[in-house]
Amino acid sequence: MTGFRTVVVGTGFIGPVHVEALGRAGVQVAGVVGSSPEKSIAASQRLGLPADYKTLDDVLADPTVDCVHLTTPNRYHFDQAKAVLQARKHVVCEKPLAMNSTESAELVRIARDSGRAAAVAYNIRFYPLCHEAAARVRNDSLGSLLHVTGSYVQDWLLKPTDFNWRVLAADGGELRAVADIGTHWLDLIQFISGRRITSVCADLRTVYPTRQRPTGPVQTYSGDTPADVATEPVEITTEDCGAIMLRFADGANGCLWVSQTTAGKKNCLRFELAGSKQSLTWDSQSPNALQLGNRDRPNESLVRDPAAMEPTAAAISSYPGGHNEGFPDTFKQLFRSFYGAIEKGILSDPAPYPTFLDGHHEILLCEAILKSHRQQRWVDVASA
């Protein structure tokens, strides 16, 4: 994959994650762009990259750049992804794809008409044992899907003094915990089960209607705001936690709990798929083991080992059994899948990576969840 030249836009927490994973995937990172020329230069120096690009416009004007990765705040995704595709470049966009379904639907259309590959960075699909779970659903090891339960919980917004742009509806959208981390779980479960979620019933909660915003910059996951930093009160309308009941296309049902105010849980996604033959349980904080639940024989623990896994799972597992793979490896495998598909001429749905159509469906899910919460009733998810 050394023939590709890629630029990453965004220098916060996730931008450098993309840079590192692209290098490990064999993709040339030609530069990184921040929110100002000064930040672009500083990030380039910090990451050991050329400082040839100061702005996104510089990148779009360079015909030697094949692809752009967008790791910017949510409110920029639509305009930036549109500009990248109109510049005839491939694009990988962080989630959520856009601020609303009108925007995401237009991005799906633009991507289709552009003839370029367009992915959303739902990296959690690319833990090898998540692919293993999906393969076991496909080969009927699970049997008929009965129900799904799970959660995605963190604690980085536990205190009223914890603050980040994501808590503001104007920057991140009207949903926060659901859109920021819940959509990872929702995308993952639909990928594994092979079934769309068709209706939802949500009960969400804003734990802190007011948070203290530092008057200076803060870094995501950097810990407590220092006591000597000046703050100002800010009204918060986005949710800190909530429960969502789910119905799937074939009649299976389920429930998701999402929270960014659960002490001690730094980044924990869990799921349990219950089938008529077997259950599958996985925890992102122990990602190299998949628990297999049985009725008439002892339960089993499948440890990640390419030699013992389904071919699709083994294909995204780079190391032999006993050599653990984790969060950074999911981005590497996502990017290998994305750029490998481009090499093969796979530029649209169905694709071996999460596409803009998948991202659009997640936006439709979020809108149904928000409507359900506000009206306190079941709401059908609009068709993508």
Rank of each mutant, 00 (worst) to 15 (best):
G23P: 01
A25M: 06
A30K: 07
S35W: 02
K39P: 01
G48I: 04
L49S: 09
L49G: 03
T55R: 05
L56C: 02
D58S: 12
T64S: 14
V65Q: 04
T71A: 15
T72V: 15
P73F: 15
D79R: 11
A81M: 12
A81L: 13
A81T: 13
Q86L: 05
K89T: 05
C93L: 08
C93A: 14
L97N: 11
S104H: 00
A105V: 14
R109M: 08
A111F: 02
I124P: 00
R125Y: 07
C130N: 14
A135G: 12
D155W: 04
V167L: 02
E174P: 14
S193H: 10
R196S: 14
I197K: 04
Q212A: 15
G216E: 12
G216Y: 09
D228I: 05
D228C: 04
E239V: 06
C241H: 00
T262D: 00
T262C: 04
K266G: 01
R270P: 03
E272W: 00
L273C: 03
L273Y: 08
G275C: 00
P287D: 07
N288S: 10
A289H: 02
A308R: 15
A315P: 09
Y319A: 03
H323E: 15
A351N: 08
L357V: 15
G359E: 13
E367P: 14
L370C: 07
D380L: 13
